[in-house]
Structures are given as structure tokens and as C-alpha cells.
Design a protein around this nucleic acid. Structure first.
Lengths: 190, 190
DNA sequence: GTCTATATAGAGATAGAC
DNA sequence: GTCTATCTCTATATAGAC
């Protein structure tokens, strides 16, 4: 793995645990095993680094979500798998991880326009994909029909982002699963 | 208003907009119109200040919530009023505010044990009160019966905290209202 | 691509005068 | 209770040698 990728991996982990403002070039250098100046060689400024990280994260996450959204399972099953994506961000560690974009939404004032746009892209892309899953679920009868699919998708994403923060703070993976089960129950048919 | 209260007011505003790590004693001093050393006179350390702020915030919020939860309106109406409490955190300004505890959940790694406990207290207290509203709604028939009231209350809080972050990032108050309407619709009877 | 060294700025915090 | 002055540490960032 290249040093550049290595830096991004460490940066993502630290951001998910501590936030952008809680992570420094020194932290990155220490974790990767190089010097601060070497980190600057790969990413001239911190906002450059955050932008590169978000671009990569969005691409990776989009791919995982697309695989679920375009699957052949029922809409409900696809949605369940999507919810599990977020549960699996929590590893059960002491200072656990949450969604990258969840953290950055809370620190949005520290981002430049490019960073903010990446976070907005994450939201937009995810809402769109969740809409597709819900549409499929209504079509195949596994999810309850409703005239507000976009609002429902927004609700799903809000619950996931907020649920992760809550679960990390108190209750862990178990609490996150409980919230997701309840959400899926409310959206299911029958 | 005392200088101490003044500092807390400014601190709360800044934390809601920028986060704890995005706010400094210098920012507070500038906004209040005193010097950094004077801020330290009132709150020796930053974590002292955050603890005092959270204690005050929880007490104020608890009171507002209790007034709603103990009201005579239907459970559904009480829940609606509770959701509106969160909508009203957003003022429609450029860099808008979100829930204090929503921000701190994202920055939980920067808090000491006392601060973390205050955030947990916020969650616990709010979940409890939402449970009361849901119970009342089931009793009076305005909300749909379910065997998982605690999980539903968790879902409500997760949606509110995540919804605020999303709405501030993109869509504003309108988006927050849409999410809350959808949530209330899913929980309502009939 | 990595290093040492340094510049510059800001952070949280303290001492002591008024 | 507020001030000036200062301490110490850490932050982002750059210059230039290897």
C-alpha cells in the first residue's frame, strides 16, 4: 500500500473517532511512522487531505450501496442490508467509529466549500439510493406503500446518522441494531 | 445578566455552530467584550466551562420537555410539540445551530468523563420523556400501539439529532420539518 | 519521498497588578 | 472582576538538504 493511501486510512480512522478538529498532522505522522513534513508532501494542506479523503470515501461507499440497491433481493431486504452497513461502522471498540459524514456534518463550520460539497454529495447520493430501495420494496410488497418516498429516505438517513452518534455515546452496536430494527418495522408492510 | 451567564450564552451559541473544538477562549472573550484571562476567572478550564454549560442546558431543556410531556394534549400532539422544539433550534441563519448534545456526541472524544456523562444524561432523560409521550398516545389512541416503546423513543431521538445535522448541511428548516412530519406520520394511528 | 529545522500563529492556562 | 504580560504547548505550514 502506498504511503498516500496509508495516510488516508489513518486519517479516516481518526476522523471517525475524534473528528477533523481532533486530528493533527502529528497524529497522522505518528500513526504512519513518518514525519509531519512528509505528510505535507502528500497533502499540502489539511483541507486538501479532507477533500481527498471524502472523495475516496464517497466513491467507496457509493459502490457498496449501489451493490445493495441494485441487488435482486426484496426492497425490504435491500434496505435491511443498507442499515447493516451503518451498524458495521461500529466495531465495539472503546472510542468507537461513526460515519465520516456524520462527524463532518457536526464540524461543517471547519470545512471549506469543497469539503461541504462532498458532504452534501454523500447525503444526496445516499438519499437517492434509499429511494430506489423503498420504491422496489413498495413494488414487490415488502415495504408499506407511501406517497412520500423522498421524505422517508431522508428519515432513514437521519436515523442512521443520529443513531450512530447515540449508540457510540451510550449503548453501542446493540442500541444501533435496536433502532434499525424499529425503523425497518415501521417501514415494512403488514 | 451576569458576565458568567453571558459567557455561557456565547459559548452555547458557538458550540452549536462550530463545535467545542471550533471555539476558543479568545472567541468567547471577543464576543463578550472582555479578555481571555477574565474568562478563565469564571471558568478555570475549558472542560469546567463545558460541564457548566451542559448542566445548564440539560436543566433548561428538561424543563421545556417536561412542560410538553406533562401537558393535557393528546400523546400525538405532545410528540409533535417535542419535535418542534428541535426544528426551532434551526434559525435559518447561514451557519445554523444544531442541538448542543448532537454536536458533542460527534466530539465525544474531546470531552472528559464529566462531560460525557452530561451528554448521556441528556439522552437518557429525553428518551424517558419521549416514552411517556408515546405511552400517552397509545393510551388515548392518537399514536399506533407497539410493544417497543423504548426503541421507538430511541428512534425518535436519533432521527431528531441526525435530522438537524442533515438539515443544517443541506435543506434547512424545511427539510427538518419534512423529516419530522414523516416520522410523526409513521407513528400515528390510522 | 523523507528528513531536519524553522516560521508563524493560536491554543489553554497562570501570575500578579489594579 | 478585569486587566497586562507571559508561559508552554501544539497547530498548520514551508525551506531546503539528502
Amino acid at each position: 500500500m502506498s504511503t498516500k493511501e496509508n495516510i488516508l486510512n489513518v486519517a479516516q480512522d481518526l476522523i471517525q473517532r475524534r473528528g477533523v478538529n481532533g486530528m493533527s498532522y502529528q497524529d497522522l505522522a505518528d500513526a504512519v511512522g513518518i514525519r509531519k513534513a512528509s505528510v505535507h508532501h502528500h497533502f499540502a494542506s489539511k483541507s486538501d487531505m479532507v477533500a481527498a479523503l471524502l472523495q475516496r470515501f464517497n466513491a467507496q461507499f457509493d459502490q457498496a450501496v449501489a451493490q445493495i440497491a441494485n441487488g435482486s433481493a426484496s426492497g425490504r431486504t435491500r434496505l435491511k442490508r443498507y442499515l447493516d452497513l451503518f451498524v458495521n461502522i461500529l466495531e465495539g471498540s472503546k472510542l468507537d467509529k461513526v460515519c465520516v459524514c456524520g462527524v463532518l456534518m457536526a464540524e461543517i463550520a471547519s470545512l471549506d466549500e469543497q469539503g461541504i460539497q462532498h458532504v452534501r454529495d454523500f447525503l444526496h447520493s445516499n438519499v437517492q439510493q434509499v429511494c430506489k430501495m423503498i420504491d422496489a420494496g413498495i413494488e414487490d410488497g415488502s415495504l408499506a406503500p407511501n406517497q412520500t418516498v423522498a421524505a422517508t429516505a431522508d428519515l432513514v438517513l437521519a436515523t442512521l446518522e443520529g443513531g450512530l452518534l447515540m449508540a457510540r455515546c451510550d449503548g453501542g452496536r446493540k442500541r444501533m441494531k435496536t433502532i434499525n430494527d424499529r425503523l425497518l418495522g415501521l417501514l415494512s408492510s403488514g
